[in-house]
């Protein structure tokens, strides 16, 4: 509104208004802000893992196998004498990289498909929606497991690209369905007609005129699916279908032999699971608040 009445103040106000938005989020969404703080801490820990972690996550130490929590090893050590806290800190890197990248990939491709489907309408829309119906009738972990079976492994810079894809692909239909319904109403607006009359290409109308207008649902879904992706990565790694040793990953820390030490080393079970829960909880909290903040009417 302010843009129309006083266009000259817009440029000056932009940074201040942005800061105002952040302040508004913090004051109106205390829970979401708490989630955001946890996310920031995890990100910092993941990025600077080399300097934050007290030990190397992969060095085995047979002198300190299954050592209980002490000052030296606050979360104890595992069956190979590796420091659990350090593995959790490095695990944050694995979880966040895979969670962020696969949610970003899945949500972006999904939004593009959803918007294009709404824009073209007719038979194209019908065909795409029937395919999405089919994909939506499966739990996302089942789809991800089928993808793992199909794609196999493909390591690149220490990250399993195919694992990222296997997690991203099940996200696509969910995001496409929601963004499509948001885009359907945009399609009818005069400025889309105007763009069409101006002779712009379909690609330009979809990318430049429609996509920016589904930004709010896109951002909400993106954060919501980061939580899902982290949970999915942990589950797949737990099943032996995700991240492989010796890469530190939370789900992997709970799988295989590590589960045999319930009596001897409960800390092996306790801390990695807490890390997963905390990360997913924080992203869910932040995502829900972001939804209330950006679009109170929107339901994912």
């Amino acid at each position: 509104m302010a843009d129309i009445s006083s266009p000259t103040t817009k440029v000056v106000d932009a940074p201040r208004r942005q800061r105002g938005q952040i302040m508004l989020f913090v004051t109106t969404q205390p829970m979401g802000s708490a989630g955001l703080i946890v996310i920031m801490i995890m990100m910092i820990a993941g990025i600077f893992a080399e300097s934050v972690a007290p030990h190397d996550p992969v060095t085995m130490n047979y002198m300190a196998m299954l050592a209980p929590p002490t000052l030296e090893h606050p979360f104890g050590t595992d069956a190979y004498g590796r420091d659990v806290l350090s593995r959790i800190i490095y695990g944050a890197r694995t979880a966040l990289v895979i969670g962020l990248v696969s949610s970003f990939l899945g949500s972006s491709v999904g939004a593009l498909i959803g918007v294009a489907s709404a824009y073209f309408g007719g038979k194209t829309d019908m065909a795409i929606q029937r395919l999405i119906d089919i994909l939506l009738s499966f739990p996302i972990i089942i789809l991800a497991m089928v993808m793992v079976a199909i794609l196999g492994r493909n390591l690149w810079l220490g990250i399993d690209i195919n694992l990222v894809l296997a997690i991203a692909i099940p996200i696509i239909p969910k995001v496409a369905r929601v963004t499509r319904s948001a885009a359907l109403s945009i399609r009818e607006l005069p400025y889309i007609d105007a763009a069409r009359t101006a002779g712009f290409s379909h690609a330009r109308i979809v990318l430049r005129h429609m996509l920016p207008n589904v930004m709010a649902p896109y951002l909400i879904l993106l954060t919501a699916f980061i939580a899902q992706a982290i949970l999915l990565e942990a589950s797949l790694s737990f099943l032996g279908l995700g991240v492989t040793e010796p890469t530190p990953a939370w789900g992997l820390m709970l799988s295989g032999n590590n589960a045999d030490f319930y009596r001897e080393a409960p800390w092996l079970v306790l801390f990695p699971g807490l890390a997963i829960s905390l990360a997913v909880f924080a992203f869910n909290l932040f995502g829900d608040s972001l939804r209330d903040f950006l679009d109170p009417k929107f339901k994912a």
């Binding site: 009596r263 829960s277 905390l278 997913v280 869910n284």
Partner: peptide, 22 residues
């Protein structure tokens, strides 16, 4: 309920086993 959605079910299962055992 939010915590219920965040906790991975395999970990919850492990906690249940651990609790029963210990």
């Amino acid at each position: 309920t939010m915590a219920g959605l965040a906790v991975p079910s395999f970990w919850l299962g492990m906690l249940v086993i651990m609790m029963l055992l210990l």
